[in-house]
Design a protein around this nucleic acid. Sequence first.
DNA 1: AACTTTGTCAACCGCAGGCAG
DNA 2: CCTGCCTGCGGTTGACAAAGT
Length: 297
Amino acid sequence: MGKAPCCEKHGVRRGAWTPQEDKTLVDYINNHGHGSWRTLPNRAGLLRCGKSCRLRWINYLRPDIKRGPFTNEEETTIIQFHAMLGNRWAAIASQLPGRTDNEIKNYWNTHLKKHLSGSDHTRSAKKPHASPDPKIIKSESPSTHHMVQWESARVEAEARLSMESPLLNSWSTSNKTYTDCYLQLWHSEVGDSFRTIKGKEEGVVCQGHVSQEASSSISSKLESCSVVQVKNTSTFAKMTQEEEGSYKPKLEDDDTGGALESGNYEFFDASESALKHLLDVPDGDIGFWDTLTVSSG
DNA sequence: AACTTTGTCAACCGCAGGCAG
DNA sequence: CCTGCCTGCGGTTGACAAAGT
C-alpha cells in the first residue's frame, strides 16, 4: 500500500557526497529549512533523492552532530540501553545527544558486538521471530504483555549484565547506575510509549495505575533491586554455573548468537525465575511482579 | 613491495506506520 | 474507509583503509 519509490533512478547521483553537495545542502537547509525532503533536491538544485539528502543531513551534516570516538560513558550507555531495547537504534540514539542511530548501529556492530560476543552468556536475547510461547503471550492482555515484555527485557538485561564480567568493571566505573539508566529510560519517550499503549487498548488499566503507582513502586523496588543486584552479582554469576540447567535454555536457544546479532527481545517465560534470583525473594512472593501484571481489567 | 584479508563506516534499500485527501 | 505520499527505522552493502602475509 502506498509505497512510493524513493526516487527516480535516472539522473540521480548516488554514492559518496562531495564537499560541494554538502555545502549546497547545508546552505539550503540553513536558509530555508528542509521542508519536504522529497522536494528538497529540486528546490536546492541537488541531483540526489530526498531520502539521500535526509540521511546525509541527519547522519553527517547536522550542526549538533557529535563526532569523534565514543567515550566510555557513551559506550556504557549504549550497552545498557541495547540490553534493554535491543536493536532499537533510534531509541538508543535519543539517549545520546549528538549521536545518530546509524553511528550507534555501526559502533555496536563493529566494536561492541565483537567485544561482547566473546562471552557465551551474551546469547540470552531472542530474535523477534524466535517463536515465543504463544500460550503465555495470549494469556496476557496486550498492554500487560508489553509491560511484561518491558520488565522481562529489563530483568534479562540485568541478568546479562551481571554475567558479562569482562565489561562489569567498566560499568562499575560509570557514574550512572543501571537502575538510573532504567529509570531514565522509563521516564523518557521510550517509557512513555510503553505506558501509553493502554490508551490504544480497551479496558486495560496501564497508564494511571502502572505509570504512577507501579512506577513509584518500580522506582523504589529498583533502588533496592540495584542493591540486590550488586549484592547478587557474584551469586548470579555462580548461578550460571550451578543452575545452568534452569537458566541456560533461554541462553542457548539461539545458536547463531542471535542475541547480539539481532538484539531484539521477545517475551520469554524464564524472566520470573530470573527476577526471583535477582530480587532474592522466596517463591510466590513476587508482589512487585504482580503489581505489573495484575494491572489489567 | 605486492597481494590478500579484515575492519570501518557512509550510504543505500526496503518495510512499516502515520497522515492527508 | 481506502489510497497514496512521506518519513523514519533497521538491516545490509560496498568503498576505502589498515593490517597481515
